[in-house]
Design a protein around this nucleic acid. Structure first.
Lengths: 342, 342
DNA sequence: CCGCTCGTTGTTATCGCTAACATAGAAGCA
DNA sequence: TGCTTCTATGTTAGCGATAACAACGAGCGG
């Protein structure tokens, strides 16, 4: 009394081979588009595969080849616009190359969390690693755990020991500040991102250097954390010292939104009373009040190049070790000539 | 002349066994915390694993057990706030349960893209599927390709053939409209999401039903597509017909931002001239001008429950087939009593 | 003191695939 | 025609784990 349809196990290579009247190896050859298989045989096999709804078992294949066709992405803050866009780009580029990108998001401030994510990725058997985590700590942990897995990091820290692809945050920041200077501003503040983020640091440096290059005063940097909430808090405080500056370079667009909110409540008009430049060019930035002048990053391009770099490394092709994508200034309505003389 | 350090292959179970002076099976037992292993042996094995930096090979394990511990996530529009938050929640919940969530993002309007994503997931050997795609088409394709893989979809379409976890968009919409009605509005417009999105449809229905329940006029729905850009376009047109309504229920917060922009340019004040309620409660919504009254969705809870449901199904536990998470109204400053008599 | 049980460990087969080698015909060439 | 060469296919042995069963002692009751 056997139960015939109990757990109808999925078809494997031998099932296909039997139905097509060939050996399993021939089926394997058809799948891998390998070498010499006659057209007649190929068609028979393909028909059999279709009929059985056959799908190769990736685990078995990985075991036999020691290759998983998996790309690991170690990411933090995946809820943010930047990382999310990046993930999307990476996934698509990977897929085009026959790879599958598996992502794990970690808390960039916790070494345990990072280590746990790395371990998972390693156990999955990823062939290479993309680190999308703007905190230096993530990179360190990843590096120490990854043995000699090919690895590229997406940041602008310019560490020489890892391949990097990055938006050139430093030039982006200079671009933003220069735009403000060219509009006639001399007292320019900077609201930066949280400590530990390499992007934030690069933007601070760009801000400083551009001001100094023009012989202008560098203010104490105002500490932010990327969130619009903090932008609002900072903006509320800044509103009281409005006579100290005429322009602000803000390290990201979200913070600008909060800042704008605070300024509006304080009766400060942008750009009449103070000019603002952001960073990111969120899809919403064109609809801020006023529409925001900001720095656009091409995340899609960054993701694409990161995958390309990794694939080169995997296939042994020599390639550039450090790529920078230059961001662009997008002019909208948040910058005007200063109306006050300080 | 052999090259000793050429390709230092990672340690496997036999290496550990040899070093610990036991059989590979005993190592397997230690890893799986299985049955009777003496403390002394366990410690020896653990020491050997640590020394060799041993990591079990997931492919081999999958092959032997026919289980991958992989949860597939078929998602569309992962750049949006909602799906991104959801993915994050799913990933964390899965990890807590010893699973790894692999996500693939597809274009919800292209059946080919959906089918391709599904095929990839299936080949990876995912044990179950979470569909985070608000378009009905995705669900259909997934259903047809998935054989009888356990599957839960995150939407409110209330299809009886699939497990669902969803934010109750219908009640959310009624909540929003009721709030407007209670503020005294009688002419309330709705800007909806794109066609084919089940959330959009549920919100439309909620809007209609709530108005009808109060005997109020239902306007033609204004077609949107979630983006702030479209919100601006729609807002620009609506500004010309401002005397036809006093309030708007907008299907998501992004569109509100564009709408606000258009109204501001047209000299229409919110909430003085027109009241607005959004949907989503973006982290930025508190800093819109004015701060937005909107409907908050608890994505984290949705993700958590979806994973729990799937795990129940996987382990054969009977569970609820359809869960609804009720959203909340968040009151801020974009709603006031109507100032005009229509 | 013998046989039984149970806790602990080892042995062998197996998962589904690919790599490497083996083999059988057909074609090419003198 | 007889030999080599190539094309198309089959056979066998792993990859690194788990499952199922076998075996070995120690402890225990009769």
């Amino acid at each position: 009394m056997s139960k015939p349809n109990e757990a109808p196990r999925a078809a494997n290579m031998y099932d296909v081979a039997r139905l097509a009247g060939v050996s399993h190896q021939t089926v394997s050859r058809v799948i891998n588009e390998n070498t010499s298989v006659s057209d007649a045989t190929r068609e028979k096999v393909q028909a059999a595969m279709a009929q059985l709804n056959y799908r190769p078992n990736r685990a078995a294949r990985s075991l036999a080849t020691a290759r998983t066709k998996l790309l690991g992405v170690l990411a933090s803050d995946t809820g943010q616009f930047g990382p999310a866009s990046l993930m999307h780009a990476i996934e698509h580029s990977a897929r085009e190359a026959g790879y599958f990108a598996v992502a794990t998001s970690v808390d960039g401030r916790s070494r345990d969390s990072i280590a746990e994510g790395m371990t998972q990725l390693l156990e999955l058997g990823v062939e290479a690693l993309i680190v999308v985590a703007p905190q230096a700590a993530v990179l360190d942990v990843a590096k120490s755990l990854s043995m000699n897995l090919p690895m590229v990091t997406i940041d602008s820290s310019n560490r020489m020991d890892v391949f990097t692809v990055a938006v050139d945050n430093y030039s982006g920041a200079r671009l933003a500040v220069r735009h403000l200077i060219e509009a006639g501003h001399k007292k320019i503040l900077h609201i930066c991102g949280p400590v530990g983020w390499v992007e934030a640091e690069a933007r601070v440096k760009g801000y400083r250097d551009e001001l100094q290059a023009h012989g202008l005063e560098v203010f104490d940097i105002v500490q932010g954390d990327w969130s619009s909430q903090t932008g609002w808090v900072v903006g509320t405080q800044l509103a009281k010292r409005i006579d100290e500056f005429t322009a602000i370079f803000v390290a990201n667009d979200h913070m600008v939104l909060g800042l704008l909110h605070a300024f509006k409540d304080a009766g400060i008009s942008v750009p009449t009373d103070v000019s603002v430049v952001g960073f990111d060019d969120l899809p919403d930035a064109a609809h801020f009040a006023p529409p925001l002048t900001t720095i656009r990053q091409n995340f899609h391009e960054v993701g694409r190049r990161a995958v390309a770099l990794l694939l080169d490394e995997l296939t042994g092709v020599e390639s550039i070790r450090h790529e920078q994508i230059v961001p662009q200034l997008v002019k909208r309505d948040s910058v005007a000539a200063p109306s006050r003389q300080l």
